[in-house]
């Protein structure tokens, strides 16, 4: 009996999460290019909200963390803190070449590399910056994978957060 209840609630939660994911955005060192494109996805031409996506400010209510930029020394700790404050299950999307790998800033003294050096990442959206369509596509792909029996697995960079 309780098994069935669990199954149903789990199904219900996934349904809710897929249909209305709450997203928090964090810039850990980006040039703003990616950020304005993320903001553009929310505006009338692209209207990400039609997928139920809601951008909001508190990590404690968020399902998805959308990251832009390489991780700078200062931002690293905050990024980890936000990630930890998010409730399980949580998903991380790295938007832009910088978030994917450090991009042009790889090798700068205050830059630690891509997001996956610090926290696990589920979806990578390359581009400098990626077009709003690409960002939407990435988020939707991530969400639809949750319904499949084998959802995407997070990837952690080589040094596993010790960078």
């Amino acid at each position: 009996m309780s098994n069935l209840v669990d199954q149903i609630t789990a199904g219900l939660k996934t349904w809710a999460r897929v249909n209305s994911p709450w997203v928090i955005h964090f810039n850990s060192g980006s040039c703003n290019g990616c950020d304005i494109e993320i903001l553009a996805t929310l505006t009338p031409r692209y209207d990400l909200e039609r997928f139920g996506v809601k951008l909001q400010g508190s990590p404690r209510h968020a399902d998805v963390l959308v990251c832009t930029g390489p991780v700078t020394r200062q931002a690293r700790e905050r990024l980890i803190r936000i990630y930890e404050q998010m409730p399980e299950p949580k998903f991380v999307v790295a938007v832009g070449s910088c978030a994917v790998s450090g991009g042009v800033f790889e090798g700068c003294y205050n830059v630690m590399g891509g997001i996956d050096r610090v926290i696990p990442v589920h979806a990578f959206i390359p581009g400098c910056p990626p077009r709003p369509e690409a960002i939407i596509d990435g988020v939707v792909k991530l969400l639809s994978s949750l319904q499949s029996p084998a959802p995407v697995q997070p990837i952690m960079g080589p040094d596993g957060g010790k960078a």
Partner: peptide
Amino acid sequence: YPLRKDYTDVPAPQAD
């Protein structure tokens, strides 16, 4: 002092 010429790199911060 990062913009001095003799500055090459600093050690990465400690993992917590």
